[in-house]
Design a protein around this nucleic acid. Structure first.
Lengths: 150, 150
DNA sequence: GTTGTAATGAGACTCATTCTCATTCTATCA
DNA sequence: TGATAGAATGAGAATGAGTCTCATTACAAC
């Protein structure tokens, strides 16, 4: 996992990942990265539109898709109909998601080491029999967030 | 978990769940349930359309949504753009999913008891701090299926 | 500065999913 | 058994998230 002391280091690393796939690190992409990196939780397109209204929708989608290809950003399918985006795990601690099935909110939670060791072992078992090569995993807990739970 | 010795018992249970929410168990819904219950893997709408062409798309969607409300069916967001459907876990063993990010295929896998005990404990820890009430969880393993892996 | 290529913005387009509404079924009760 | 009211259905229109196109703009390299 990478850690970044300064925002500049973050941007440098992103730039490197983009360069790998022959992409430039432009103003618009930088704005998206800055927003996602400073956000506590995964953001939907409309969240992004609200907070950075000067980026048009089509560009936002394109930036996210390019950043995803570069391994900077991760797309997650929530329990409601729209996708959400967050920084890839190289930029964050490995974590899982609590999905509120009432309001669609997504909350990040960090697992213990012990748990992740168990998960990794289990994933190996599960996939080996199927000839499946795992690249990542996600544990989603579905339920109701504190707000919706009353 | 329910187990069903005969198809009739399955249908009886589904009917009960539908009645709870004042819904009838009609021919169309029965056909959808029979298809999902006999399928090895989660099905997309176009899978369903192919195998039961006499059910129109709009009705299939409505049946699935009604059956989901009744707790008979579960909708899963795969890595590609379309949703897939399978019987709810009361009708199946508790299981997790391998998602192929190349072809979108979804494979069901059954975890060991030990693993699920660990998961349950972990889920409790994670959610308690957030005031989140968990109703279920899903472990998705993302990677490439045997077919796409060459 | 020029030039070739990549990135962007605006809006058209696609297509999975949902909605509408006229028609058909079905449970219930006379 | 028939009548009737409410529920379910089918066909197609509508919605809207996400993608694509293409004319314009920015940028890197010389």
């Amino acid at each position: 996992m990478q850690t970044f002391d300064t925002v500049d280091e973050l941007h440098e690393f992103v730039e490197m990942l983009l360069h790998r796939i022959d992409q430039r690190y432009t103003i618009g992409r930088r704005a998206v990265v800055e927003l996602l990196a400073s956000s506590e939780r995964p953001l939907s397109i409309s969240d992004i539109e609200t907070r950075v209204p000067e980026i048009p929708r089509s560009s936002a989608y394109r930036h996210l898709s390019d950043l995803q290809k570069a391994g900077v950003v991760r797309r997650i399918a929530a329990s409601d109909e729209f996708a959400r985006f967050e920084m890839a795990e190289d930029f964050l601690h490995h974590h899982h998601h609590l999905l509120c099935s009432s309001c669609g909110q997504v909350i990040d939670v960090t697992p213990t080491r012990a748990f992740e060791r168990t998960v990794a072992r289990m994933v190996d078992e599960l996939t080996a029999a199927q000839g499946f090569r795992a690249t990542s995993h996600a544990l989603d807990v579905i339920g109701h967030c504190a707000n919706c739970e009353r």
